[in-house]
Simulated assay, not measured.
Amino acid sequence: MSRRTALLVIDMQGRFKEIAENGKIIENIASLVKLFHNKDLPVVFTQHHDDPKMTSVLSRWWNNPIIKGTEEWQIIPALQKVLNVEDDIMITEKSRYDSFWETPLKSKLQELEVDTVVITGTMTNLCCETTARVAFNNDFNVIFLSDCNATSTKEYHEAALKNLAFGFATVMTHREFLKKYENV
């Protein structure tokens, strides 16, 4: 893991807490946040919200908006405990699956000369997979951790991992990542 690696923690919010708990990813992500903090590497948290007027196709598709500022929008408590409010990058204006769309994410990563992103969060096949693909298309190396991402079904999760491994990301487990990069 080089000085040019950033951890992306995507949409680990109240709305997706049950999915994260069922996927058993919270503890793994918390340990990664601590590792990145200890190595003084960038950590980015995203928080999805929908337009309360439901003007986007995404908002209308789900017809169950996440309203900015509500409990569903907040970072889940277990990760709030490891969040460094002074140093972590907070992307709070995310309103699409893609964490780069109309957010400062790309410019923040470029300012820090990041060339590799490690993707974690919810939901594997929606926001996490889309962000991984867009990161790849923006010339970032992508590491996607299979047991640090979760979604609503095992089938969706596994399909996303297969697609990403084929052409967009290096897919590995949390343990494999630590073994390869922890002492670098």
Rank of each mutant, 00 (worst) to 15 (best):
A150W: 09
N138K: 15
V85R: 13
V43L: 02
V142S: 11
E72G: 10
S146A: 15
Q80I: 11
F136G: 08
S107A: 15
P42F: 03
E86T: 13
V171H: 09
C127P: 00
G167L: 05
V114T: 13
R3A: 12
E71V: 08
K81H: 08
M90W: 04
F45G: 06
D51Q: 12
K162R: 10
N125P: 05
T116Y: 02
I76D: 04
T92V: 13
N84H: 01
N84Q: 01
I75R: 05
L105H: 00
V142H: 12
I67P: 00
L8M: 10
E158N: 05
K17H: 13
T116L: 02
H49N: 07
K108P: 03
K179W: 03
I143T: 12
I10G: 05
Y181K: 01
I29G: 00
K162Q: 08
K106R: 14
A30V: 00
L126E: 11
T55C: 02
M54E: 11
A150Y: 10
N141W: 04
N38K: 15
L7V: 02
E158Q: 08
T153R: 00
A135F: 05
N183A: 10
Y181G: 03
Y181F: 11
N137C: 10
D40C: 14
K53I: 05
K68D: 01
I19H: 13
F144V: 11
D115G: 07
D147M: 09
V44F: 02
I143N: 10
L32E: 03
D98H: 07
P52W: 10
R60A: 14
L35K: 06
P52A: 11
D115W: 07
G69M: 01
E71C: 00
I89W: 03
K17C: 06
E158H: 00
D139L: 12
V82I: 05
Q80H: 05
S152M: 15
H48L: 08
